[in-house]
Design a protein around this nucleic acid. Structure first.
Length: 803
DNA sequence: AGCACGCCGACT
DNA sequence: GTCGGCGTGCTC
């Protein structure tokens, strides 16, 4: 094999294909598909992935450059994952390089640097000489002054300064310094005797080795002997000790003890659900199960026992968990049962930690991964099962390129490995449940909670009624009464706030002015910390104005009912209650989330107040009341899944109450009590909700009856975006069959983000392949405009947010 | 994407 | 006359 086909690290339509590179003699036989290389590309150097090997290039050798460097000794992507990447880029209409990179930890992504080197010092101006000072070379990115840049360019052109392009790794393996004796014990004793009396630290270190101490980490040795690194340095220089460096894993869970747990006996219902999964594992068949179990029905125990079967067969398993529920509670359950065989992957880990967890998988040191969305790409080669917990969660959909859904990837991988997929939820997506009803998936119902606890009593409170009765506060009379009662009984309550529409904003009471982000068409969110306004889309920040910029009034103040606001009100009406608030402000620090939850678990507060993030996996025996302050907010978002999301959220939240001996109750405050998505939470009736919602979806041609795709066109000028969107819509209308429905173009619900105007077109279709072809044509046709006129076209083949 | 090349207007 | 604006085209 003399030539490697390489996908280079450039995200552009024209470059989205393999490029040929000759393999130099010293790399012959070493390069394999799935390895990373550094290759010259035009004037620069880029990282790339080897996607193929061949004897010769069709380009006949003349313009074929050589591979410059091989970055891996073993492929970072298995053959299966290489195939999966082409499928992924195809399915999501994203670049091959983007799909490849999505499968690897960020640490393996390249970092690019330009280095300037002085060739002819005489030719340079004093100013530039000063810039270089005594150094021969300088990093391009370190040059802050824009004026110097242009004069530098001149010298580069004349050849007085040379530019070299470098590729670097983002993070490296963590190494620690190890110390061991470099002489035998007798020699060490002799040297120890010869030490001066003051050198007590050195003596202590030597005694460690004289006593037979083994090779030890420098830090540990210092701690043991109370010595400093200077002491070690002296002994190293004397040649008595020697140092070496060893690779270690950054283990985010190293300080924690996991109590070993044993399998629990299954209920009859659990066993009935477990049997078919067990059988599929035993028979190595690909099969998708939908484990539909009410909250508290013991789904996790079924996962654990299924995994046990998989591991017993010598195979591996992936468990996906929604990002926000990757709490220590969840991790504990898996680590407790399977100990060090588990790797954990979630966004809370640093780049380095994620890299280390990934390498544990790659080196076959673990056989089970518990992780968020991207863990679906774990490089296992002998997969025996994939579990997706809370399968309805929207965090399984990636909202950047490649816009994949982890469920689709899971099924694709499971097909390849001929192994089962288990989707678990109390409120499955309509898509999944419909497939289960059709027999595409196998439905495994769990209708009862373990230990026969009853489902909590749910009562709906009509907030319009409250208002009519003169209660203008955000707490209904019923909720207040219940809160007081729980407080008196020393039981705990959880108050839940739908996040969307609940972020607080600032408004002028005289003219109604609401500060908008200058770069996005969206209201700014008020943050009490530092009295600032923030934009959640682009990160723009500014102080709260003292007077209204529109009318000059001083009556400008914050509005809305953010968690902070609720907390204030709550302490006013229930001053004796101890409240823990969980929102972006209180949980942004690392580990804060965990700390707040365990404080609540230990009974250090009476009320836990928060947004969606507290709805998942919360399981505290003393919680007997759950209150939802306003159930309507998710109902009014511009999304065809609004009702589904509302029902899921309310059901999920209700499930937090009365999970143990004490019975629980739920109070849902709403302005639209008659809506079926709210009514049916009262009876925990998923089946009826499914029927009603399906009727709506059918009437409006939405999933699961139709597929949906979203095309968004953006440009700095509104007109340019609108015209292109119009053209695309017309093209699609003429090119797609009669079964396809095309809506738009229309301004996006968020009409502008980061100074770009956005227009969108929604496509509803029944035949996947046909549309894929049409959309590919569009991207191909507009690649010129994309490159030159700065038009951006983004396509989402399965949007979860129509924004 | 980025970078070089090349063709036009505004300055020393 | 040169400098530097950014339209155009290429990258194995």
């Amino acid at each position: 094999m003399n030539v490697a086909e390489v996908i280079v690290d450039v995200s552009s339509k024209n470059i989205d294909r393999p490029f040929d590179y000759k393999i130099p003699d010293h790399l012959k036989g070493m390069i394999e598909v799935g390895m990373r290389v550094i290759v010259p590309f035009g004037p620069r150097k880029l990282q790339g992935f080897v996607t193929g090997l061949k004897d010769s290039s069709e380009l006949n050798g003349k313009s074929v450059k050589e591979v410059e460097q091989l970055l891996d000794l073993t492929p970072v992507l298995t053959e299966e994952l290489m195939q999966l990447s082409s499928w992924l880029s195809d399915k999501t209409l994203s670049f091959k390089i983007t799909a490849l990179q999505a499968m690897l930890p960020a640490a393996l992504k390249a970092k690019y640097e330009k280095e300037l080197k002085v060739i002819d010092e005489e030719a340079l101006t004093p100013e530039i000489k000063r810039l270089f000072r005594d150094q021969k070379s300088l990093l391009y990115s370190d040059i802050a002054d824009q004026n110097i840049l242009s004069s530098l360019q001149k010298f580069v052109r004349r050849g007085s300064i040379d530019v070299t392009y470098k590729v670097a790794q983002k993070t490296n393996k963590k190494m620690i310094r190890m110390i061991e004796a470099d002489e035998d014990k007798e020699e060490l004793s002799r040297q120890a005797d010869a030490l001066s009396k003051q050198a007590s630290k050195q003596l202590a270190v030597l005694h460690y080795f004289i006593a037979g101490g083994a090779k030890i980490a420098a830090a540990d040795l210092c701690k043991k002997t109370n010595a400093s690194s200077a002491t070690l340095k002296t002994l190293l220089e004397k040649g008595l000790l020697k140092e070496s460096f060893e690779e270690v894993y950054r283990d985010p869970y190293q300080d924690r003890m996991f109590k070993k747990t044993e399998p629990l006996p299954l209920t009859d219902e659990q066993r009935a659900a477990f049997e078919p999964i067990k059988q599929a594992v035993a028979d190595n068949v690909h099969h998708v199960f939908l484990l539909h179990g009410v909250t508290g029905s013991g789904k996790t125990e079924i996962y654990l026992q299924s995994i046990e079967k998989v591991l017993a067969k010598g195979k591996e398993a992936i468990v996906l968990v929604p990002e926000i529920s990757l709490t220590p509670q969840m991790v504990n359950r898996f680590k407790g049962r399977f100990g060090s065989q588990v790797a954990v992957m979630h966004s809370g880990l640093s780049t380095g930690e994620k890299y280390d967890e990934w390498r544990k998988i790659q080196r076959r040191e673990v056989r089970l991964v518990v992780g968020a969305r991207s863990a679906i790409f774990a490089p296992f080669e002998n997969l025996g099962m994939i579990i997706i917990d809370e399968e309805h969660e929207s965090s399984y959909k990636q909202e950047e390129m490649p816009r994949y859904h982890a469920k689709d990837v899971a099924i694709k991988r499971a097909e390849h490995h001929s192994c089962p997929v288990v989707l678990g939820s109390a409120t499955p997506t309509l898509e999944s449940f419909a497939r289960a009803k059709k027999g595409v998936y196998e439905l495994l119902p769990l209708k009862h909670r373990v230990n026969r606890q009853v489902m909590p009593e749910v009562s709906l409170v009509d907030m319009r009624e409250e208002l009519r009765n003169g209660n203008r506060s955000m707490f209904s009379t019923e909720l207040m009464e219940q809160l007081e009662e729980k407080l008196a009984k020393k039981e705990q309550a959880v108050l839940f706030l739908n996040k969307r529409g609940y972020s607080s904003f600032v408004m002028c009471r005289d003219c109604g002015y609401v500060p908008q982000c200058p770069h996005c068409d969206i209201s700014m969110t008020y943050h009490r910390y530092g009295q600032r306004l923030k934009c959640h889309y682009c990160g723009h920040e500014e102080p709260v104005p003292g007077t209204c910029p529109e009318c000059g009034s001083e009556h400008i103040r914050f509005f809305g009912t953010g968690t902070q606001r609720v907390e204030e009100e709550l302490t006013k009406v229930l001053p004796q209650a101890r409240v823990i608030r969980m929102d972006v402000d209180t949980t942004s620090r690392k580990g804060a989330h965990e700390k707040l939850l365990s404080a609540f678990g230990e009974g250090k507060a009476d009320i836990l107040l928060g947004t969606q993030m507290i709805a998942k996996g919360l399981d505290f025996p003393n919680v007997t009341l759950v209150g939802v302050l306003s159930a309507d907010t998710t109902l009014h978002i511009p999304d065809f899944r609004a009702a589904e999301k509302t029902f899921q959220l309310l059901t999920q939240v209700s499930g937090r109450a009365g999970r143990h001996e004490k019975p629980g109750s739920v109070i849902i405050q709403t302005y639209t009590p008659s809506h079926y998505s709210i009514q049916l939470t009262k009876t925990h009736d998923y089946e009826s909700f499914f029927q009603q919602e399906m009727a709506h979806r059918r009437a409006q041609s939405y999933p699961p009856y139709y597929y949906v795709a979203l095309v968004t066109v953006s440009h700095e000028e509104a007109a340019k975006a609108a015209i292109t969107a119009e053209k695309i819509t017309n093209f699609l209308k003429s090119g797609c069959g009669p079964g396809t429905k095309i809506l738009g173009p229309a301004a996006s619900p968020i009409a502008r983000i980061k100074d770009r105007y956005r227009y969108q077109c929604v496509i509803k279709y029944r035949q996947e392949t046909e549309l894929q072809v049409q959309l590919k044509k569009i991207l191909d046709h507009y690649k010129r405009d994309i490159a030159q006129k700065h038009v951006m076209i983004s396509i989402d083949m399965n949007p979860y947010m129509l924004m």
